[in-house]
Amino acid sequence: MVNIDDFVKRLETLLDYYNLNASSFADKIGVQRSSLSHLLSGRNKPSLDFILKILEVFPEVDLYWILNGKGSFPKTINTEQQIETPPTPLNDNAISSNLFSEVQETKKTTPVEIKKVEKKPESISSEIEKIVFFYKDGSFKEFTPQ
């Protein structure tokens, strides 16, 4: 659970760090100024949407730090969490203009019979955009309904 008093202190730290007042901070992350005012006064607790907007606009903010004070601000990368293997240099000849054009099917696949299942109609109507089958050999097939 978020301690609102400590959260307000961390929020004020953000304002000081970015040299913003409450109004400009609210405008920058896309929330109403009154919402931020209610948070700063301790009247309201932060919503998940509010936290996600902060993280989206200010990537230096660590989620755990803003929520419960654990971690650091600005965010530091733990050396153990960095990428394990260095990237391989790319060969210009290895990249084709369409990465999926060279996918070859290595396994014979047998068609699968799909049975229609009757289901109660839901209140929300939704349509299938596409169906993708992934195979263990790394290949895939994509089907788009007509």
Rank of each mutant, 00 (worst) to 15 (best):
T144K: 08
A94C: 08
E56M: 04
D6R: 08
V57I: 07
P89N: 10
R10C: 03
N91W: 03
K9L: 06
S35V: 02
M1C: 08
Q104A: 08
Y135P: 12
F140W: 12
G30F: 02
E113M: 10
Q146R: 09
P87S: 09
L55T: 01
L55K: 00
I4S: 00
I95A: 06
S47G: 10
T88M: 11
K115P: 04
E80H: 13
T109V: 12
L20P: 00
E122C: 05
D92F: 10
I66A: 00
I114M: 08
I114E: 12
L11Y: 00
D16H: 05
P121H: 06
N91K: 04
K136N: 06
F25N: 01
D137M: 14
R43C: 08
K141P: 09
E102P: 05
S47H: 06
K9Q: 01
Y18I: 03
K141W: 01
P145D: 00
I54F: 07
K53E: 02
L67G: 07
N19G: 01
D6Y: 06
I29C: 05
E129C: 12
K107D: 15
V61F: 00
V31R: 00
E60R: 04
V117W: 04
T144A: 08
E102I: 14
L90R: 13
T110P: 02
L40P: 03
M1T: 13
E80M: 15
R43Y: 09
G42L: 00
Y135H: 12
D62T: 12
V103D: 07
E142Q: 04
N19A: 03
E142R: 13
V31A: 03
V61G: 03
S96Y: 15
D137N: 06
D137Y: 09
N21H: 05
E60Q: 01
I95K: 08
N91E: 14
L11F: 00
S72L: 13
E12V: 09
L20S: 03
Y17L: 02
K9Y: 01
S37N: 04
E118V: 11
I128A: 07
Q81R: 14
G42V: 01
S23C: 11
F133Q: 15
S125F: 12
Y17T: 08
Q82H: 06
T144E: 05
S37A: 10
P59M: 09
I128S: 12
R33Y: 00
K45N: 04
